[in-house]
């Protein structure tokens, strides 16, 4: 079963043509070629960003399977709508917006499902947050402390209401501006600031045992 899967994976990986492989083509050229139906160019283009998109989705959804689905949906949408990309922003910004919207929709859907489930049973769902924290220093105590804090922050972020979480995530984790967050979430800048403030207060409450 596993061997078959590995084999399928190997077969599915599209090898770029020699021309594309040997030349580090500028992004604008790849976009142009991809728009003209060159699949290898599209493949090269997305290969630069797919890990970033997966990471973004994972940090927002805290779930590998969901993150993989978000990446898949994002790439399909990018492929379908590439011709509509007017190059007013960078390709990554455009792809990033698609990914954030796909991830947020998934988050909303999941929140609804959890609400329905919670009528019958006690659903926690956020207990198994993966701990993929790289070593930062050589000091075990420092590493342990950092991990502890990061786990707590992740958990707190996963537990605050979704409308605050998406704003906090985009502003404080991803580092976007209020205006950019407002554009992505289709909110006013004032609403972004308000949610950001409330969300941070939620986090403060949840982390009061650790950060004071």
């Amino acid at each position: 079963m596993l061997e078959k899967r590995i084999d399928e994976t190997k077969k599915s990986l599209i090898k770029p043509k020699e021309e594309l492989k040997s030349l580090p083509l500028p992004e604008s050229e790849l976009i142009k070629r991809a728009k003209n139906g060159n699949d290898e160019a599209f493949e090269m283009l997305i290969s630069r960003y797919e890990k970033k998109i997966y990471n973004l989705a994972y940090r927002l959804l805290n779930n590998e399977e969901d993150a993989a689905e978000v990446l898949q949906e994002t790439l399909i949408r990018a492929y379908r709508f590439l011709k509509k990309f007017q190059e007013r922003s960078s390709f990554y910004t455009w792809l990033y917006r698609i990914a954030v919207n796909v991830a947020l929709r998934k988050l909303k859907k999941r929140a609804k499902e959890e609400k329905v489930l919670s009528l019958d049973q006690n659903v926690t769902g956020y207990e198994d947050i993966p701990q993929e924290i790289p070593d930062e220093t050589q000091n075990p105590e420092v590493i342990y402390e950092r991990k502890k804090i990061q786990e707590a922050v992740r958990k707190a972020l996963a537990e605050i209401p979704e409308n605050y979480r998406s704003v906090i995530f985009l502003r404080d984790v991803e580092g976007l501006s209020n205006k950019e967050v407002a554009e992505i979430l289709k909110l006013s800048v004032a609403a972004v600031k308000s949610r950001l403030h409330r969300g941070r207060l939620f986090l403060k409450e949840k982390l009061k045992h650790l950060i004071n």
Binding site: E132, V153, G175, R200, L207
Partner: peptide, 12 residues
Amino acid sequence: IIYELKKLSYYE
């Protein structure tokens, strides 16, 4: 808190 959020480790 903002500092910690910024430092949320990059998932590899």
